[in-house]
Design a protein around this nucleic acid. Structure first.
Lengths: 118, 118
DNA sequence: ATGATACTAAAGTAAATGCTTAACCAATTA
DNA sequence: TAATTGGTTAAGCATTTACTTTAGTATCAT
């Protein structure tokens, strides 16, 4: 089961929910208040607050209360953590294709030198 | 509530679990059997199978049974879906910084031309 | 044929998730 | 000062998630 969650876990979990992803998309354009964030959704304000707290817990979003309105903004560092994980997979995948390519080249060279078909 | 899940939802949800992410990492290096995938984890085989089925459902992994062993491989298209979402956010974020920068430049130009301090 | 191997299916469970409603409080505004 | 606005807290609930154990079913080796 999931006990000590890494920052990467928290980020991926936060982004797994479409509502939260939409909130991140919104905040990527500009900072917004809790009410602003809630407006597009057909759910209660407390529900939105809970999503927001997941986002804050993951480090993807930060917020600050000014007067009676809480302004929220994205925190790009957490997003780039996710980005790095994906990139690492792509790089490894590329390396694999390279190895496979080299192997196929080797096979081909061998095949060209003897009389086997294909 | 979550009803019709988009491919992106499925991919993010699949990657939200550390066990499944580890399985993806393993498969990025080379294809592996169910048993291979299970070995590093201290959980039952059925549990691993369930994780695998989530990964397959998300399109991140494909598998094929040969004899009595099921070989699994990653399916990079689904990963690149996630990558694209992240990139889109980074681009939007960049655009925002550009706008902010332009605004600050404008302020600065104005500030340089009049007598205000700073 | 017998047993071992590799996986699969089914059912059950504790905990987490994504909501809700019903208060509540603290800044504005009238 | 009283009402409104914007947010917050707490409690409760249905569903989903991440497992477990138990009991299979096909292969493959001997």
């Amino acid at each position: 089961m999931l006990n000590q969650l890494s920052p990467l876990d928290l980020a991926f979990q936060a982004l797994a929910d479409p509502t939260r992803r939409a909130m991140v998309e919104r905040l990527t354009r500009s900072p917004a208040s809790v009410g602003d964030l809630a407006r597009p959704f057909s759910m209660s304000l407390p529900a939105v607050l809970q999503h927001l707290s997941v986002l804050e817990g993951s480090g993807l979003v930060a917020s600050e209360k000014i007067g009676r309105v809480r302004m929220c903004r994205i925190e790009p560092a957490a997003l780039s953590l996710v980005e790095q994980w994906i990139n690492a997979r792509r790089i490894e995948w590329g390396r694999r294709l390279d190895r496979l390519g080299a192997y196929l080249e080797e096979l081909k060279a061998k095949g060209d030198s003897d009389g086997s078909n294909e």
